[in-house]
Computed example of a mutant assay.
Amino acid sequence: MIKKVLFLAMFATALFSNSFNQNSNIGSFELTDQFDKKHTVNSDVKTMIVSFEKGTSADLNDFLATKEKGFLEANNAVFIADISGMPSIITKIFALPKMKKYNYNILLITDDEDKRFLQQEEKLTVYKLNNGIVTSVQYITKEDIPSLF
């Protein structure tokens, strides 16, 4: 019994210690975009905007649609969308073709075991970074998006 409790405690610690929190160093990691091109997220990035739901992604897409091509790059920002819960057939037939019409890259989380990013229901998670260190984590709604930049 004690072994089970210790195992669960270690598992929970490992699970939550892998999340990016304030003062975390994100290091360097790769994600693939909607064109199946790999992108490296590293200390050059100043803002990571992460969406876990269709609605919050749509809110950010609406905002970015009003900006010129290269807006995210010019602001040292990346848009990351968690599509891991989406059935692969839906992803291939509907989601990716729609995403390919955007004039910016969307980095995709496709592994449902990827727990690096914190989330709150119906909100975007925004990480502000300085030299790869998380200086703040915010949860925002549509109304807050313009104030990010």
Rank of each mutant, 00 (worst) to 15 (best):
residue 98 K to P: 00
residue 59 D to I: 03
residue 106 I to R: 03
residue 93 I to M: 13
residue 100 K to D: 06
residue 131 N to V: 03
residue 71 F to Y: 09
residue 101 K to Q: 14
residue 120 Q to P: 01
residue 44 D to T: 14
residue 55 G to M: 07
residue 83 I to E: 00
residue 104 Y to F: 15
residue 34 Q to G: 06
residue 41 V to L: 03
residue 74 A to V: 11
residue 118 L to W: 04
residue 91 T to Q: 05
residue 39 H to R: 04
residue 96 L to G: 03
residue 116 R to C: 07
residue 57 S to Q: 14
residue 105 N to I: 08
residue 86 M to V: 12
residue 51 S to N: 12
residue 115 K to N: 09
residue 30 E to L: 08
residue 85 G to T: 05
residue 91 T to Y: 02
residue 111 D to Q: 06
residue 85 G to V: 02
residue 100 K to I: 11
residue 31 L to E: 04
residue 81 A to L: 08
residue 55 G to S: 12
residue 131 N to R: 01
residue 32 T to S: 12
residue 130 N to G: 10
residue 99 M to Q: 10
residue 74 A to C: 09
residue 128 K to V: 07
residue 23 N to F: 13
residue 56 T to K: 00
residue 40 T to Y: 10
residue 133 I to T: 15
residue 116 R to M: 05
residue 81 A to M: 07
residue 129 L to Q: 00
residue 74 A to N: 15
residue 50 V to L: 03
residue 52 F to K: 02
residue 69 K to G: 10
residue 117 F to M: 00
residue 86 M to C: 01
residue 48 M to I: 08
residue 87 P to A: 02
residue 63 F to Q: 08
residue 78 V to H: 01
residue 85 G to K: 06
residue 66 T to H: 10
residue 33 D to C: 11
residue 30 E to P: 01
residue 24 S to V: 14
residue 49 I to P: 04
residue 32 T to N: 07
residue 34 Q to A: 08
residue 65 A to S: 15
